[in-house]
Design a protein around this nucleic acid. Structure first.
Lengths: 223, 223
DNA sequence: CAGGATGCTGAACATGCGTTTAGTCTGTTG
DNA sequence: CAACAGACTAAACGCATGTTCAGCATCCTG
């Protein structure tokens, strides 16, 4: 069902060398992290290491070009899904299509490494979640919140962070099969997540009420 | 209230050189990650880089010694808190005492780097959460779960992962003030977390019921 | 065809880092 | 005191890796 419905990215072998290097870099960065040697990227692209520098000047520039390219790809997919009215988290959206796996891996490394792109990625996810929840509240399927923005950000951080943790914990080999990871992830956590999100975790309101009282009249900081 | 109640770790300056190197390594690893050069650790300890090798043989050994030491420290704190009947997550427990900040930073790096210690750390947290929730269920403050173990693991991954995400996103400088991070973290996320945990997120049971139906009679995998 | 731009390469260079080596200093022991 | 052991250091080694250099081939342009 999810094999070839979307536009497949240009991954053929008759690309310009620059593009081939970029794609190889995205693959290598995603599978092995940003510390992968330039020589390995060059080898994967079938060119000499010097050509990488010839086209991108520096490794940091190459990484930036990869970020640019993936960002552009995301934006395309996103606007496409918006026009088709399909509402989901970016991560899941991208995870759907098998051929996007390299880009997903790359994004994961960005999230793992922090930095500017990680922040914008997170902000985008949080905004998506907020819009999604807002629609749900209006439709009556999601409970309203005292602070919708904070709730959305928390849920986004939860999702991304839990996934990050999950992958980090099971990373003995150098390469990660993200399709598999996502499958295992949902298999392990879908039930408890749905359970808590549906029925809650705490049996009474005492903690929440105590906190609400606390924030409305915060005690002095010691020291 | 949390200044000097627990036993302060031996951080005086009249330690054996080996111990000084180990402590310096814990500090450096925690503040700058495991990629910190041996030379910097040596400088911080006030010794020559060669002495580090003389005492630990290799950088990996030094890291292992740090893990050992911190693990031992955790165990001490944990048994101490068990005998005093104070039940909390390890992370919060340790975060309480200011003087444990370097160890907390080191543990965070372990979690971030993955590997064996990260796994055992996570397992320990999950087990703690499970026991904690179990007590709560028995006491009537926590709702029962269809799969208490999975719920505990999910919550543990959520907590650790969200924190990991939070720190990763705000790490421009080389060093991290974990006291401050934890304060900001709770300030931003305490309300939505309590809200969701108390009142739930979804307004109706349709998703949960659909999933329960799904797992009881899973459809075929395509392909 | 001359000449330059472009794509590309093998080899070398520079640097950072883990580690080794050879040797010094100090204290202890017989 | 001689001899030895352990703590400790300056300097160097070896390796990985980012980057540069000088040159070769090819193709376009006049």
């Amino acid at each position: 069902m999810s094999s070839a419905t979307r536009k497949p990215p240009d991954r053929e072998e008759d690309l310009t060398a620059r593009a081939r290097i970029r794609d190889a870099a995205i693959d290598c960065f995603g599978q092995r992290g940003f510390n992968v040697p330039v020589r390995e990227i060059a080898e994967r692209a079938g060119v000499s290491p010097a050509l990488v520098m010839h086209h991108f000047g520096t490794k940091a520039n190459l990484l930036a070009a990869c970020e640019d390219h993936v960002t552009r790809l995301i934006r395309e997919v996103k606007t496409e899904s918006v026009t088709s009215g399909d509402q989901q988290t970016i991560l899941h959206q991208i995870a759907e299509a098998e051929e996007f796996a390299p880009y997903l891996a790359f994004l994961f490394r960005c999230l793992q490494a922090g930095g500017e792109l990680a922040r914008t990625l997170y902000e985008r996810m949080a905004a998506d979640v907020e819009a999604y929840l807002d629609a749900g509240v209006k439709a009556g399927t999601v409970r309203p919140s005292r602070d919708p923005r904070a709730r959305a950000r928390w849920l986004a951080a939860n999702g991304a962070g839990t996934f990050l943790m999950f992958v980090t914990l099971r990373e003995p080999g150098p390469d990660v099969d993200f399709r598999k990871v996502i499958r295992e992830w949902t298999a392990e956590f879908a039930l408890p997540a749905l359970e808590v999100y549906t029925e809650g975790l705490l049996a009474d309101r005492s903690m929440l009420d105590a906190y609400l009282l606390y924030v409305s009249d915060p005690p002095e900081e010691s020291s």
